[in-house]
């Protein structure tokens, strides 16, 4: 894990993709995309239907290792607006366990704005200590923590390309990696990030067990 200072607050970046805020006993995650498999199934790709269970199990396991009172979900928790209804019983039980035992803030995203998760408070954005928690960032110079983009970084080493999901941290923004097990990513070199991120950025590449820090100049673009 890596500790960072963001607007004078200590945050911890976890290799699982969780952002932990110890002083607030809060855990922040983004982009679970639950039931992506069954969404695909509708279109003829009968993917293994275990992604929701696996993602929620991963969340629960990591959650129980930390001192947590509050969970902030940063949107796209479900892959589509019908996804909550398709969630099978075993997965629903874990979700219920989480929302029953922890104060859960549900900031909705573009994929799941019509979903209401029981036992959670639904917001379009949420604010603590002048830090805004949202699914997508605004372009203004506010302090914001968000998801949505599934950032993924590419490194080249001796002709070998390494790619990992990552956090992007700047002075005023933190972009979280996607947490869902079926979620892909977009290249952090993509121009879209320039619209709301300062040019000085740190990248924290994660791979379940480890987290590594890199600056912009060490990265490659996907192509």
């Amino acid at each position: 894990m890596k500790k960072i200072l963001f607007k004078k607050n200590h945050f911890i970046l976890m290799p699982s993709g969780i952002l932990y805020w110890p002083d607030e006993f809060s855990l922040i995650i983004a982009d679970l995309h639950l039931e992506k498999s069954s969404y695909f199934a509708k279109y003829g790709s009968l993917l293994p239907p275990y992604d929701s269970f696996e993602t929620l199990t991963k969340l629960k396991e990591n959650l129980l290792k930390l001192k947590v009172d509050k969970i902030i979900l940063l949107g796209d928790i479900f892959h589509d607006n019908g996804a909550y209804e398709r969630l099978e019983r075993k997965s629903k039980l874990i979700l219920d366990f989480i929302t029953n035992n922890f104060y859960t803030i549900f900031v909705f995203g573009n994929h799941d704005k019509n979903i209401n998760i029981p036992n959670t408070k639904k917001y379009s954005y949420y604010k603590i200590k002048d830090i805004i928690f949202s699914h997508q960032p605004s372009k203004l110079g506010l302090y914001e923590i968000f998801g949505h983009y599934h950032p993924k970084a590419y490194l080249k080493f001796r002709n070998k390309k390494i790619s990992k999901n990552c956090f992007i941290v700047t002075k005023k923004k933190i972009c979280l990696p996607a947490f869902g097990v079926y979620t892909g990513g977009i290249d952090v070199q993509n121009k879209v990030f320039d619209e709301f991120l300062e040019s000085k950025r740190d990248y924290y590449l994660i791979d379940e067990k480890n987290i590594f820090k890199f600056g912009s100049n060490q990265l490659q673009s996907k192509f």
Partner: peptide
């Protein structure tokens, strides 16, 4: 777009849950 999916991710999950698929 978000509709494309990485086979490595599927493989990981399938191997864990349905070893004999």
């Amino acid at each position: 777009n978000h509709l494309s999916i990485n086979s490595d991710l599927i493989f990981k999950v399938l191997k864990k849950y349905e070893r004999n698929h």
